[in-house]
């Protein structure tokens, strides 16, 4: 699937997914849609890129810390939920306001600002970050049996009865790992 055609098309599809997901996200209150569906749709687009380009390349393209994304989303949702407390209301108390845009007597339509929208932003981010993170983590991982060398080191440490912090495992995935894309083809 990693042909040029597929890659080009997937880029286009990604763009469409992005736009439509934003659309769905904004529409959520009145029409089918909302933060969750929007997020999942965008994830579909992102995963398509991952599948067609291979994980490492796609990672380089996005340069995103998906771990952080859902952390941020969770934080945002939490804060949106806590915020009403500072206004002497209960947790998760919602409010909305419809603002009319009217300049010089000409109506430019009206926009609705709902506090639940803020919360939905959090949902949106968590869904994107979490789902992409899960799938890329599973896709990236390559099983490698523990090296002999490490074993010796640890056993030596044990004999000396000193609890040393174990050598840090490399968090970054090296380039030679098999990408999920290859697996998915």
């Amino acid at each position: 699937m990693t042909t040029i055609i597929a890659q080009t098309i997937s880029k286009a599809v990604f763009a469409i997914c992005l736009m439509y997901s934003v659309n769905l996200f904004i529409h959520g209150a009145n029409y089918p849609g909302g933060g969750f569906i929007g997020g999942v749709l965008l994830v579909c687009g992102i995963i398509l890129i991952y599948v067609t380009f291979g994980i490492n390349r796609a990672d380089k393209m996005f340069k995103q810390d998906w771990f952080g994304w859902f952390g941020f989303g969770l934080l945002f949702a939490s804060i949106a939920a806590i915020f009403p407390m500072f206004k002497n209301h209960n947790y998760f108390r919602s409010a909305f306001n419809v603002v009319h845009f009217e300049f010089f007597g000409i109506s430019f339509g009206e926009l609705e600002f709902a506090s639940s929208m803020m919360f939905d932003v959090g949902v949106y981010f968590v869904v994107i970050g979490g789902l992409v993170f899960i799938i890329t983590q599973i896709g990236k991982h390559k099983y490698s049996p523990p090296k002999e060398k490490d074993e010796k080191n640890v056993s030596l440490d044990r004999k000396d009865n000193i609890i040393l912090p174990e050598p840090k495992e490399e968090t970054e995935i090296t380039d030679n790992t098999v990408s999920a894309a290859e697996g998915l083809q």
Binding site: Y31, V98, S116
Partner: peptide, 20 residues
């Protein structure tokens, strides 16, 4: 809540606590 999609309103507002 000012929303018309009742399902979504329930998800993010009435029972937003579930959603979090």
């Amino acid at each position: 809540t000012g929303g018309r999609n009742i399902v979504n309103v329930i998800v993010v507002d009435f029972r937003g606590y579930d959603t979090i």
